[in-house]
Computed example of a mutant assay.
Amino acid sequence: MRLILLMMVMICAPSATAHEAHSGFKYERYCCNGDDQTGDCQMIPMRTVKITPDGYVVSLGPGDHRLVTRKHVFNWSQAQVRHSDDGEYHLCLYPNEDTPRCFYAPDMGF
C-alpha cells in the first residue's frame, strides 16, 4: 500500500521547474540549466549593467557571476531582454561563459 501511495505522489507531483534566484525569482526553463548552486543563471550586480538608448550593456568580471573567469561585455537590445519582477538583474550563461542565453532586467522605471 505504501509503495502504491508513493508512486501516486511521484506521478501526481508537478514536474520540476527551472531553478530560482535567492530572491525567489524563477528562471524560465529555456534559460536555466542546473540549480541555484551550480546552474548558469544568477543575479548579477546592478553596477555591471548600463542602460543605453539601444538596450543594455552588461560588463562582467570574475566574481560577478559564478561562471565568469575573465572580462566579458554583452549587448542586449530592449526586445531581447526578459522581465525580472524582483527588481534585480539576472544573467544565464550557457553552455559556457562566452555564451549569454538570457538576460533579465526590471522595468526601466523600477
Rank of each mutant, 00 (worst) to 15 (best):
T69I: 00
H65F: 06
F110K: 06
N33Y: 13
H22I: 09
I4E: 07
Y89C: 08
Q80T: 09
C32S: 15
C31S: 00
D86S: 14
A13Q: 03
R2T: 11
R2L: 13
V57W: 04
D36R: 13
Y94R: 02
G24V: 04
P45S: 12
M43R: 10
G109S: 14
L6A: 13
Q37V: 11
K26P: 14
R82V: 03
I51E: 15
S77C: 00
E97C: 10
E88R: 08
L91W: 01
R2V: 11
A21V: 13
R70H: 05
R66T: 07
I44D: 00
M8H: 10
A105E: 05
R66I: 08
F110P: 02
R29G: 00
C12Y: 10
G61Q: 10
T52V: 04
C102N: 03
N96S: 12
Y30N: 08
Y94W: 15
Q42Y: 00
H83C: 11
T17F: 05
V49N: 04
E28T: 08
V9S: 09
P53G: 13
Y56S: 08
A16S: 05
D86L: 08
M43Y: 07
Y94K: 05
M108E: 05
N33E: 07
G61M: 10
H19C: 06
G109W: 01
M7F: 09
C41Y: 05
P45R: 09
R47S: 14
M43Q: 15
A18E: 07
M7C: 12
S59D: 14
T99E: 01
A79T: 07
A105R: 00
V68C: 02
A16N: 06
Q42N: 11
V57K: 12
M10C: 07
C92G: 01
P53T: 14
H83L: 09
Y104E: 03
A79P: 02
K71T: 08
L60Y: 06
G61P: 03
V57R: 14
E28V: 12
K71S: 09
P106A: 05
F103W: 02
T38P: 06
G55P: 11
M7Y: 06
S77A: 03
Y56F: 14
K50Q: 13
Y56R: 03
T17S: 06
G39F: 05
I44M: 02
G39L: 13
R66S: 11
S59N: 12
R101E: 06
R29M: 12
Q80G: 11
Y104M: 01
G39D: 12
R47H: 14
S23I: 08
P45T: 09
S77F: 02
R2H: 11
Y27A: 01
H72S: 03
H65M: 02
M8S: 14
T38A: 08
R29D: 12
V73C: 00
M43H: 12
D98Q: 13
P100W: 09
F103A: 01
E20L: 13
N75P: 06
P100D: 12
G34S: 09
K26F: 00
V81Y: 10
V73Q: 05
Q78E: 15
